[in-house]
């Protein structure tokens, strides 16, 4: 029988890859809002005013609110206060008919002093002198703001006379970026659960924690569909019990472990035989007083071109160098799909 050419082999190896890429399109779901044009906030008013502490009423410039605008309208004001003072600032929103449609007070303060802690000291200057109110207009039209100082006092409760700078900002089309970010992360989390259910699962045929790999091989005898089969192993080796616990210091951090693999068909014919080298890597125990252990992890992928009965005969030495096998976590799955090319052994 003629051997397949190099090009034929290349196509064969590509065709046997269990690549399934369309589920990756689901990543577009959380990214979709980012693909649409961002909606910038709109500045409606940005004004500096001077407030008189005697209660004189001042008005902002008029501005237009749109009842149909998406998002929220934001009123922001920040007042400059003298040190060690408190203010009660009244704000009213007036519509085009000079009717009050929203009224509120801001009780602000500013305090300066010294602090001492653990032998250190410094000056603090802290204040609460701004506000932010979010709302939506119910009618489009011209609006303006009316401000007045209800009271300005010092720490002793004595009235102060001062001119106070006031910065006013009105914006609309304010979207909730915090909610948008949470939405992205939650949606991404659900999509990752979806991808995990596809790419990391397959169909479990046999598995569990075992002591004897060769004995377990008997349970791999079953009918396998056309497709990719995965054998995943994670094993733990420990120092031989009769060896001095200090011996591990001389033991290599990586030990070669030969794995013998035979794939046998339904008639008992050995289809494939291979020696695979695994590597035992030294790991530190959780408790520093305990000696370390050695661990190996290996995933083997096989492409089965047609429905048939197979058995995977696997064996490793139970003891090598000065370590012996404790247990192996064994996992046999089929119907494997992947988002990236795998190193696959074809079962001919």
């Amino acid at each position: 029988m003629a051997q397949p050419s190099g090009v034929h082999r290349l196509f064969q190896s590509i065709r046997q890859q269990p690549l399934l890429l369309w589920p990756l399109l689901s990543l577009m779901i959380p990214l979709w809002p980012g693909c649409t044009a961002p909606m910038p906030k709109r500045e409606l008013l940005a004004q500096e005013l001077i407030l008189q502490s005697n209660g004189e009423v001042i008005f902002s410039q008029p501005f237009v609110l749109d009842a149909e605008a998406v998002g929220a309208t934001r009123l922001f004001a920040s007042v400059g206060l003298p040190v060690n003072s408190a203010i009660s600032l009244t704000t009213e929103l007036l519509n085009a008919s000079d009717q009050v449609v929203l009224a509120f007070d801001k009780e602000g303060w500013r305090e300066r002093g010294t602090w001492q802690e653990d032998g250190q000291s410094g000056i603090y200057d802290e204040s609460d002198s701004y506000y932010e109110v979010l709302f939506k207009p119910n009618q489009s039209g011209q609006y303006r703001l009316r401000f007045a100082v209800d009271g300005l006092e010092d720490q002793a409760g004595q009235a102060l006379v001062a001119q106070l700078p006031l910065r006013v900002d009105v914006q609309d089309r304010r979207v909730d970026h915090g909610l948008a970010i949470w939405t992205f992360w939650i949606s991404l989390g659900i999509v990752l659960m979806f991808l995990n259910s596809i790419y990391c699962q397959g169909r479990r045929r046999y598995g569990g924690r075992i002591d004897d790999l060769l004995e377990t091989s008997a349970f791999t005898r079953m009918n396998y569909e056309k497709g990719v089969i995965m054998i995943k192993m994670k094993g733990r080796f420990e120092l031989l019990s009769y060896i001095n616990s200090d011996a591990y210091k001389k033991t290599s951090s990586s030990i070669k472990l030969p794995l013998s693999l035979e794939i046998i068909d339904g008639n008992g014919l050995v289809l494939q035989s291979e020696k695979i080298t695994l590597y035992l890597n030294k790991k530190s125990a959780n408790d520093e007083d305990d000696p370390p252990y050695w661990q190996f992890k290996k995933r083997l992928f096989f492409y089965n071109p047609r429905l048939r009965s197979l058995r995977f005969r696997l064996s490793i030495p139970e003891q090598i160098d000065c370590v012996e096998q404790e247990w192996i976590d064994f996992d046999l799955r089929d119907r494997i799909v992947s988002m990236r090319p795998l190193n696959i052994r074809r079962i001919d």
Partner: peptide, 16 residues
């Protein structure tokens, strides 16, 4: 739902 709510903000108080 999240994108719609973050843009239209249905829980924000409407004047009136």
């Amino acid at each position: 739902l999240g994108t719609n709510d973050s843009i239209h903000r249905p829980t924000i108080y409407r004047l009136g």
